[in-house]
């Protein structure tokens, strides 16, 4: 089955697409990390990027909100569109783009400030009343399933939280900006299994309102949370499609081997 047909399973209509990639590639100096990626990220649901180490999953994720812009030797090929606007256009306001395409990293990194200040960190410079600030903090922490844990100690330093709570605080910090897309680079890799399950449930919830694009090496987790799957290998998008289809009936042997065999081993 040609690749374009698999992509249609992710999104068949342009108005359902939040991010689309056209022959997209990433190079660092002479090294090609990604090439020829054509894909659509639908406006709802959790899309999981899977593939072996070095496949270019994190590179793709980081390229979408231009977090790697400062890296020496970075060059981009092809085009990436976010709601119709080209992400790498010369007139693209990178800071606004990053605020709209939120990102949560593998290792939680809270700023050395209070829990509430961390949530409001991206909103500094925006004039808000105390009541508005409190509402944003509460909403974001509820959205990240952290409100019940911390509502009585919002003024405490964020680094006193557990790793799992810190990761949820990072999610809350991103949610406070009301992003249009949320990118998550192995968000459960540094947390305990219980926290990981909480974050998985959170991703499912978030996926109902905004597109969530996440990277994971845990195929069991991918099966639990994914609505759509993109399988990358050696810098190429091998196959993409609906999660149920990909896990049960992937078209290409390479995908079957990776998703089915490895998943069966888990």
């Amino acid at each position: 089955m040609p690749q374009s047909q698999h992509l249609k399973l992710v999104s068949s209509a342009p108005h359902h697409v939040a991010i689309s990639l056209e022959n997209f590639g990433v190079w660092f100096g002479d090294s090609c990390i990604l090439s020829g990626v054509n894909a659509h990220l639908p406006k709802r649901g959790v899309t999981v990027l899977v593939g072996p180490s070095g496949a270019g999953k994190s590179t793709l994720l980081r390229a979408l909100n231009r977090i790697s812009d400062d890296m020496a030797g970075l060059s981009i090929q092809g085009r990436a569109y976010f709601e119709g606007c080209e992400i790498y256009a010369k007139d693209c306001d990178v800071t606004k783009l990053r605020a709209r395409i939120g990102m949560v990293f593998q290792k939680p990194c809270v700023f050395p400030r209070s829990i509430a200040q961390n949530v409001l960190f991206g909103l500094r410079g925006v004039k808000l009343s105390q009541a508005q600030k409190h509402d944003i903090v509460e909403q974001a922490l509820r959205g990240a399933a952290l409100w019940n844990d911390v509502h009585a100690r919002l003024g405490e330093r964020a680094d006193t939280l557990s790793m799992g709570q810190q990761q949820r605080l990072c999610i809350a910090r991103a949610l406070a900006l009301k992003p249009d897309v949320l990118l998550m680079d192995e968000p459960t890799a540094s947390v305990d299994p219980v926290s990981a399950r909480t974050i998985e449930a959170l991703m499912r919830d978030l996926g109902r309102t905004i597109p969530v694009l996440t990277v994971t090496h845990n195929l069991a987790q991918a099966k639990r949370i994914a609505d759509h799957v993109l399988f990358l290998c050696e810098g190429q998008l091998v196959e993409a499609g609906d999660a149920a289809h990909m896990f049960s009936n992937a078209a290409l042997p390479k995908t079957q081997t990776y998703l089915c065999d490895e998943f069966c081993e888990c």
């Binding site: 800071t95 606004k96 990194c109 960190f121």
Partner: peptide
């Protein structure tokens, strides 16, 4: 200062100056 601090700040839409 660890790079993740910078990346997390950039990811929240902060400029380099901020």
């Amino acid at each position: 200062i660890d790079t993740p601090y910078r990346e997390n700040a950039y990811a929240l839409g902060l400029t380099r100056e901020q």
